[in-house]
Structure formats: structure tokens, C-alpha cells
Write a protein that binds this DNA or RNA. Structure first.
Length: 486
RNA sequence: GGGGAACUACGCUAACCUGGCAGACUGCUAGCUUUGGGAGCUAGUAAUAGGAGUUCAAAUCUCCUGUUCCCCA
């Protein structure tokens, strides 16, 4: 057993993921050099290994956007107060957390400027100038940027930050149906990125009116599950109808010469998903990063002494040269022991470790160790191609494991007492029939602290004719997922 | 909005009650010896959140400011 002194000596994770999730989460992010706190409270630093992941998410998502015809633009960081105030619901939703610029140099500004909490208002001011005719539609624009929302609750890296990175897609259509069709396309793109790159399963569905975006007609989301059993909202899609079009006067003349308002959507995926990914996959030894998103995918650790040093390092470099398609690091630094390196790279979440010592050189092999399950695999030097399938398997295994966890934490409940009991233990998603009234939703939240996360698309077919609302007993209209929520 | 606690080197911490040389561990730099699961020795480096007061003397006592955390609404 290690003594307390040993713990102090080395950078490692001392909190247990199961017992003390929030301490564990912070330790795992900071000690692995993944992110750091900054001089500004509630705003963190993305270090190379975490920024690489954001950059990748951006790259893959953006490629899908381009494929379906969404173009990138960039709008200003500041929004004049009068624009932000134009849509009533919107300003009501955001005003408590807007950061304001009131001075330029030593001069007080005539009109204060909001640091964008989201860009609808400044973008739609331009849209109203750009959209004149049916020929200008659809207009499908997106920007990758940062936004500031001045949260007052305890900030948590990625999950609750005063500044975060995201995409904001803002599209305008002539036809309502055409606008609605975009929903499944965009949610499909987000789902693909979450599933195939971050190895995260989610639940797609419609938000309740209470939880929908400020200014939207309807909101949709992919809800994810944290390891502590709390739900967290992932990427979302909002159907804005003509709300913003009317406030910002975005009109076009159709083929018959009639002037009409456009139909709009907005959608986003944010850097929050990185936090969910880390929390989901990582363990008490440190980070576990899905191989496709790892900054360094493979670390080679030569194990040598004075007599065989050159031979083993040459062999290691040779292996690296043969693994050109991967991001590989050879750590031949002589001042740290192999054991130290093993622990260090496990903490940093490098997906595969290759050990090369006398044994391997003599037999013309390498020893591969998987970060996620600790499996050791001996490979002939001439069959390095198998690394490909090991990496692919690890990527899939991480998803499957997370999917199993999610599936085992969705419980159908038809009785409110049972509901209350289950939510006490942070059981995950409780799926229940609901009458559709905000009153019941409020009362459920008051009594259990569980929010309606969304109404899963694929659960609606389970609604039976005689199902009744879990709270009031009136006929049920939807199946809703309730959960304690971040 | 109300109440409470804390702040010493990158980090973790000692000395604080009872005022008197700021001491470890980790890190970092250099050298030598090591290297199959967090190596050892030697030398070096770096700190009392900011300001004011009391005092011969303040990390220590008092006040102000700042920051962080916790609890309640």
C-alpha cells in the first residue's frame, strides 16, 4: 500500500471516479496537462492535447456541413445593445449572463456592446439586408467561434465555463417544410461525430416548451449521460419558425411577387462535449482518449541500459518510421525510468503504448499495450499493420462500453413514488409518460429536482393509448426523459 | 441577497493559538550513477495575496481591499 507521502510526491489521481466524481474530474483534467485554469475565473486554457481534440471535432463536423451545403462565415465578437434587444424572448433568456463592453480606451461608449452570448441578433441584422428574393434562399451559414456567458454557478472545465468554443449554424428557408427537413440532417451529423469520433452515445429528441431555446418555436437535442448518473445536454438544433424573421424583418419576394417572412433554424455543438468524453471514458489512472482524437496516438518507450542503448533506440525509431500513418512519439529520454513513463502516458491518455527492450529486439517483435483495458499484445515486427485493427477495435470498444452504460441507465417508470425513489440515487434517465402541461413539468422538477431533458424520438412509439401522465394522471401525450441535469 | 472559512515557492504543506533565523515534500536547473511499473546522491532555484495599523520586532495580532471556496435564500 502507498503511504500518504507517496501520494504527495507524484502527480496522480487521488480521487476515485465512483466515490468522488467531481474531484476526480478536475484532477484528471489538470494533472494530465489537458487543460489549466487561467487568471480569469471561470475561463480555462485548452492545452495542446485538448485543443487538438477541439480542432478535430471542428474539422470532421465542418466537412459534413460542407457536404450538405452549409458555408462558413465570421461575424463580429460585439453586438450593439439595440440589436440584442430586438427579440423579446431571446433577450429575456440571455440578459442575466451577458458581459458588456462600456468603454473604449478612456472613452465611455455611446452604446454599450455585448460580448456575444450567441450571434442570432447580429447575424440576422445582416440577413435582413442580404435576403431580398426567393433566389437568395436558402441561406445556410455557419461560424466557428467563441461565446461568453457570465455564469455565476461554480465553473467546471468544459461543462460550465464562462467562455466556450462552438459552431453556430444559422439558416434561412423560404419554405417551412424545407426548414424542418434540415433537423434530421444536422442532428445526424452531430450524432455521427459523437458516435464515431468521441465514442459517445446519446439520445435524440425534442425539448419540452419549458426547456426550449430562448426565441425558438421548437428545440431538439442530443442528451448525454455523465458517469455520475446526471444528464447533460449535448449538441442542439432549434427551429425558430418566423420569430426572428419578424423581429429582424427578414423578408423575401416569392415567385408570385408576394413578400414573405423566412423560416429559420439554428444549431450548435460546443466544446462541452470534450468534457463529457473525458468523463465518460477515463479512469482512476487518468485520461482515456478515443484513438481517432488523440494528439499522440502511440507512445514508444525504449527500455535500455548502457550496454544496449543505441541498438534499442535505433530499433524504436525504425518502428516509428514504419507507423507513419499514426501520430507517434518515441520517448527515449534517459532521465526518467520506464515505470515513470508508463504512469505518465497512462495519465495523459495515450491510446497505445509500445514497449521495446532486449526481449523485443531479440525476437523481432514489439509489445503493445492498450490504455483502455490494459490488454498486452505481442506483434511481429513484420505485422505492424495489425496496429490499425487494434486502434479501430479500441475506438469501437469505447463506444460500446459507453452505450451499455447508457442503456442500463434508461428506466421506464409509470409510478410517481417509484420515480421519486429512483431519482434520489442518480439513476440516469427516467422515461415516463407526460400530459404535456408545463404545470406538471414544474411540479415534477420542484418535488424531485429532475428536469425533462427531452422527448426521445424513438421512445414515442412506446406510448400506449391508455398511458397517463406520471404526475397528474390525465391522458399522456408524450414519453419524456427526466433526469437530474447539469 | 445573507452568513461562514481560507489565501505561505507551479503544486502540496510546516511554523500561526503563545509575535523573534520562513522548514519539508514535489517541481524546475546542473552534474554523476541508474533504467522491464512513479530510481539515488550532490549542488542550485523559488514563497508569507495587496495595503494600512499596533510593536524594538508581524506569516503570526487588528483593520481595509482583492481573490477563492462552502452554507443558506
Amino acid at each position: 500500500m502507498e503511504s500518504l507521502n507517496d501520494i504527495d510526491k507524484v502527480k496522480k489521481i487521488t480521487a476515485d471516479k465512483e466515490e468522488n466524481f467531481s474531484d476526480w474530474y478536475t484532477q484528471v483534467l489538470i494533472n494530465s496537462d489537458f487543460v489549466d485554469y487561467s487568471a480569469v475565473s471561470g475561463m480555462m486554457v485548452f492545452r495542446p492535447s485538448s485543443y487538438f481534440i477541439w480542432d478535430s471535432i471542428k474539422k470532421y463536423t465542418d466537412a459534413f456541413f460542407k457536404e450538405v451545403g452549409i458555408e462558413d462565415v465570421y461575424f463580429p465578437l460585439f453586438i450593439p445593445e439595440r440589436l440584442l434587444n430586438k427579440e423579446k424572448e431571446h433577450i429575456k433568456g440571455f440578459s442575466p449572463e451577458v458581459a458588456w463592453v462600456t468603454e473604449g480606451g478612456n472613452t465611455k461608449l455611446e452604446e454599450k456592446l455585448a460580448v456575444r452570448p450567441t450571434s442570432e441578433t447580429i447575424m440576422y441584422d445582416s440577413y435582413s439586408k442580404w435576403i431580398k428574393s426567393w433566389r437568395d434562399l436558402p441561406l445556410r451559414l455557419n461560424q466557428w467561434n467563441n461565446v461568453v456567458r457570465w455564469e455565476f454557478k461554480h465553473p467546471t472545465p468544459f461543462l460550465r465555463n464562462r467562455e466556450f468554443l462552438w459552431n453556430e449554424g444559422h439558416t434561412a428557408f423560404a419554405d417551412e417544410k424545407e426548414a424542418l427537413n434540415e433537423r434530421d440532417v444536422v442532428l445526424g451529423i452531430y450524432d455521427n461525430v459523437l458516435r464515431n469520433y468521441l465514442a459517445l452515445p446519446g439520445i435524440r429528441g425534442k425539448k419540452t416548451d419549458k426547456e426550449k431555446f430562448a426565441g425558438a418555436v421548437a428545440s431538439y437535442s442530443i442528451e448525454l449521460l455523465m458517469p455520475d448518473g446526471w444528464a447533460i445536454q449535448g449538441p442542439d438544433f432549434h427551429n425558430d419558425g418566423q420569430n426572428f424573421a419578424k423581429s429582424f424583418d427578414i423578408k423575401y419576394v416569392d415567385k408570385s411577387g408576394e413578400s414573405k417572412y423566412v423560416y429559420q433554424n439554428t444549431f450548435a455543438i460546443s466544446s462541452r462535449v470534450i468534457g463529457i468524453m473525458i468523463a465518460t471514458h477515463s479512469d482512476n489512472k487518468g485520461l482515456i482518449i478515443p484513438p481517432k482524437l488523440a494528439y499522440i496516438q502511440i507512445v514508444i518507450i525504449p527500455i535500455y541500459n548502457n550496454s544496449n542503448k543505441d541498438k534499442i533506440i535505433d530499433y524504436s525509431n525504425n518502428v516509428k518510421d514504419r507507423l507513419k500513418e499514426f501520430r507517434v512519439l518515441v520517448d527515449s529520454d534517459g532521465s526518467y525510468s520506464p515505470g515513470w513513463k508508463f504512469n505518465e502516458y497512462e495519465l495523459k491518455g495515450i491510446p497505445l503504448r509500445i514497449e521495446i527492450g532486449n526481449k523485443e529486439v531479440e525476437k523481432n517483435t514489439i509489445t503493445v499495450k492498450r490504455r483502455d483495458n490494459g490488454e498486452k499484445i505481442e506483434l511481429e515486427i513484420n505485422s505492424l499493420g495489425k496496429i490499425n485493427s487494434i486502434i479501430d477495435e479500441m475506438q469501437v470498444d469505447l463506444y460500446e462500453k459507453a452505450k451499455k452504460f447508457l442503456d442500463s441507465h434508461v428506466t421506464k417508470v409509470y409510478d410517481f413514488d417509484e420515480f421519486k425513489k429512483k431519482i434520489q440515487n442518480h439513476i440516469g434517465f427516467l422515461q415516463a409518460p407526460w400530459c404535456g402541461s408545463m404545470e406538471c413539468e414544474d411540479k415534477i422538477a420542484d418535488e424531485t429536482k429532475a428536469k425533462a431533458t427531452n422527448m426521445p424520438f424513438d421512445a414515442q412509439q412506446d406510448l400506449k393509448e391508455n398511458d397517463v401522465c406520471i404526475y397528474c394522471g390525465k391522458p399522456a401525450k408524450h414519453i419524456v426523459n427526466f433526469a437530474r441535469s447539469y
